[in-house]
Every structure is written in structure tokens, then in C-alpha cells.
């Protein structure tokens, strides 16, 4: 009576397969078309002399800057060193923000009291411009690494908390009732019902939050840094080295996309039930 049921594929292999085929071919084709057209426009504008090469260098110059900074470095650090300095800041700050923001969000999502007590703080500082906060952080923590990490941390935190609160509050109460009827303790319900049920929404919040943290990176690296992609861009701009600036922005953009893809992969491995059939 029962047909043969195919064995479920291991999560990692499915995730890898899906990463390779992230989009159906048609959209991939159209997206590539946009990229190619933009690139052609860049070539045309620079080759015909429409754009001043001082402000918009041609692709060749940017590629040359890429090679130069990769091998010889910019102001004493190679591209990889700049990139890892930035990624280190981002990941440490974002990781800390997750460690604190997600549990705090769960707490605020489940407890009215916690929400009332903590939300004024978050609601107030969330709309403040990062640079404004940064001045205070520099006064408090100095111009070293601490104030940079603190700024990135503060940038990552509210998005994570708010997404987690939403995620927890939107959990279908039937899961909690089912768990209670099966004898689960509060601890079990938090760990085995709230967290996985809220997981997909929390992950979406993490992706948005990481994107926002990324946008604050340049601001965080303006002051007293000696390495970092953001700092490199800022420093090169002072000398009108637009090829380095554009190269830096492209590297920043591509690593941003890569980080987002890693997060999605991470989500599919951690939450295999959410993957599409």
C-alpha cells in the first residue's frame, strides 16, 4: 500500500545543492544581464572620455589597483589584511550582538515586564545616527579597537532584538500548549519550542542586522585605524585615489553578498525543516 519513500537527503548536501542553484536560470540570466550592462556602461563612459578619470577610473585601473593592493598593499597592509581586519571587527561585534540580542529578544518577547523595562533604551538609541553615537563612544572608550567594536555591536543589536521579539510573539500558541501537555518544563519550552519556532524569523533578522552593521563599518574605521577596508576607502579618498576607493567598495559589496550567503547556508543547515522541497 505504501509506496517506497526516498530517504531524506543529508542537510549539508541539500544546502550545497541549493547554494549552487540558488535561483532559477531565468532570473539568474536576467540578473547577469544587469551586471554586464552596468559594466559595459562603465567601460563606455570611461573610454569615451565622458567621465573624468580622476573621479571615475576605468575598469582596468581598478583591476590594477586590486592587484597592487593585493600584492604590495596599501599604507602598509595588503588587501587581505585590510579585509580580515574589517571582517574580524564585524564578526566579533555581530557575534556578541547575537549572543546578547537573541536571548534578550526571547526574554522581551515572552515577558511583558522585560519588554516594558528594556524597550525605551532600544527605541531611543536605535534611530540615532551611528556617527553621533561614535563620538561618545570614542570619549568613553578611546580611539582604539574597543570603540569600533562597540559601535558595530550597537549597530547590530536593535535589529536583532526587535526581530527576535517579533519572532517569539508570533509563535503559534498551539506548539506551546502541545509541549506543556507532553510534560515539558519552561526551560524545555524555551529551548525546544520558542527557539526553533522563532528560528526562521530570527535568521531573517540576523541577515538584515548584519547588512546594517556592514553599512556602519566605514564610519567605525574612520578614526585612528591603520587597517580595514573601510579605513582604506576613507584614506584613499583623501588622496583622490578613486581606483582604490572603487576597488574597496566592490570588495566590500562582494564580501557582503558572500556573508549573506553564508548566513543563509548556515540557516539551512541549522534549520533543515525550512528548506524548500
Amino acid at each position: 500500500m505504501k509506496a517506497d519513500v526516498p530517504k531524506p537527503e543529508p542537510a549539508l548536501r541539500i544546502a550545497a545543492r541549493r547554494l549552487l542553484a540558488l535561483r532559477p536560470p531565468r532570473t539568474l540570466l536576467l540578473s547577469s544581464l544587469t551586471v554586464i550592462l552596468l559594466f559595459c556602461a562603465w567601460v563606455v563612459v570611461t573610454e569615451t572620455g565622458l567621465a573624468n578619470p580622476l573621479f571615475l577610473p576605468n575598469p582596468e585601473a581598478v583591476a590594477r589597483a586590486f592587484m597592487e593592493v593585493s600584492t604590495e598593499g596599501y599604507q602598509g597592509s595588503t588587501l587581505i589584511e585590510h579585509l580580515s581586519a574589517s571582517l574580524y571587527r564585524i564578526l566579533v561585534a555581530f557575534g556578541l550582538a547575537c549572543l546578547i540580542g537573541i536571548p534578550l529578544g526571547v526574554l522581551m518577547g515572552t515577558s511583558e515586564t522585560a519588554r516594558a523595562l528594556l524597550s525605551p533604551m532600544i527605541e531611543f538609541y536605535r534611530p540615532l545616527p551611528p556617527l553621533g553615537i561614535y563620538t561618545l563612544l570614542v570619549m568613553w572608550l578611546g580611539i582604539g579597537e574597543e570603540s569600533k567594536l562597540a559601535l558595530l555591536f550597537l549597530a547590530a543589536l536593535p535589529g536583532l532584538i526587535i526581530a527576535t521579539i517579533q519572532a517569539v510573539r508570533n509563535i503559534d500558541p498551539i506548539y506551546v500548549r502541545a509541549a506543556k501537555a507532553l510534560g515539558a518544563s519552561t526551560r524545555t519550552i524555551v529551548l525546544q519550542v520558542y527557539l526553533p519556532a522563532a528560528g526562521p524569523t530570527i535568521l531573517a533578522g540576523m541577515r538584515i542586522s548584519l547588512g546594517f552593521t556592514y553599512t556602519v563599518l566605514v564610519a567605525a574605521e574612520i578614526v585612528a585605524a591603520s587597517a580595514g577596508i573601510g579605513w582604506m576607502i576613507w584614506d584613499a579618498a583623501k588622496f583622490l585615489l578613486s581606483d582604490v576607493v572603487i576597488m574597496g567598495l566592490i570588495v566590500l559589496g562582494l564580501t557582503g553578498v558572500a556573508l549573506d550567503m553564508v548566513m543563509r547556508l548556515f540557516g539551512q543547515i541549522l534549520m533543515p525543516w525550512t528548506r524548500k522541497q
Binding site: I174, R177, A178, Q192, W273
Partner: peptide, 14 residues
């Protein structure tokens, strides 16, 4: 007391 609900209440993540 075991409970069976009207809607499907299985944990989708398990």
C-alpha cells in the same frame, strides 16, 4: 493526560 488537537500541532522543526 495526552492531548490531540484539532489543528496539526506537530513541531515542524522536529
Amino acid at each position: 493526560r495526552g492531548m490531540v488537537f484539532q489543528q496539526y500541532s506537530l513541531f515542524p522543526w522536529k
